[in-house]
């Protein structure tokens, strides 16, 4: 499947549409409802936080949006594509072209250099020459303030620098949707603020949609919307 040619794009600007999304882990008496009938839409270019207490279903919801996990019920649409029943391969294709991920634990590939980590999503798509990809990766690394670190091994950087690399990697393919799972959770307060400012700046500049799961709502200041989850349900959308 080529997600760029996929039919079914609706006439609105929703990048994410969750329709009565449900996720149940286990079965019978030992089942756990992680998400229960969750419906919402996120518009293109929005900066959205998903907040809630531990166990409220934030990360599960992010994994559903990121197509890393399949819902038990309901539907999930990404950029108009109903991804609920896509094959594993097609879900990978959607992720590759439309979604960027930033993880709490940075999750860089330790065996690659900084620039190679950032080039990886481009290499997966395989468009363009290696030198062009490298140039683009270095450009994005420059944007996140790491122009001088490109040849370092990923594991030689500080936590804040690693998360900047992760942001660069998430953005390099210009995905329509950037997902962050506690992206500041492992950073000190200064580094956290730097990364938050960077993401908000890129959101404004590049008009990419950011959906961030966080415990540190206040640190993000003003955002477009905040989805508050409680016990697997939406408590409020502010």
């Amino acid at each position: 499947m080529n997600p760029r040619r996929r039919r079914g794009i609706r006439g609105n600007t929703s990048i994410v549409e969750s329709v009565r999304l449900t996720k149940i882990y286990g079965s019978g008496d030992i089942s756990t409802v992680a998400l229960n009938d969750v419906s919402f839409e996120i518009q293109r270019g929005e900066f959205v936080l998903i907040v809630g207490q531990s166990g409220s279903g934030k990360s599960t919801l992010l994994h559903m949006i990121g197509l890393l996990d399949k819902p038990t019920g309901g539907r999930i649409l990404i950029d108009g594509i109903d991804a609920t029943f896509l094959s594993d391969s097609d879900r990978s294709e959607v992720r590759r072209h439309k979604i960027g991920f930033i993880f709490q634990a940075f999750n860089l590939l330790a065996d690659l250099t900084v620039v190679e980590n950032v080039m990886l999503p481009m290499m997966m798509i395989g468009n363009g020459a290696s030198s062009a990809m490298r140039g683009e990766a270095e450009l994005v690394l420059g944007k996140v303030g790491l122009a001088k670190q490109v040849e370092k091994q990923a594991n030689q950087l500080s936590g804040g620098q690693m998360q900047r690399v992760a942001v660069a990697r998430a953005l390099v393919n210009r995905p329509a949707l950037v997902l962050g799972d506690e992206p500041t959770g492992n950073l000190d307060s200064k580094s956290s603020q730097d990364v938050i400012n960077l993401m908000k700046e890129l959101n404004r500049e590049l008009k990419q949609t950011f959906v961030i799961v966080t415990h540190a709502r206040e640190a993000f200041g003003n955002v477009d919307r905040t989805i508050v989850l409680k016990d697997g349900k939406i408590e409020s959308i502010e």
Binding site: S89, L120, R169
Partner: peptide, 16 residues
Amino acid sequence: IREIGVMRAIGSNKAD
């Protein structure tokens, strides 16, 4: 394992 998960998240499929 974690790096495999990361590669899957950023677009690798199982065959890759």
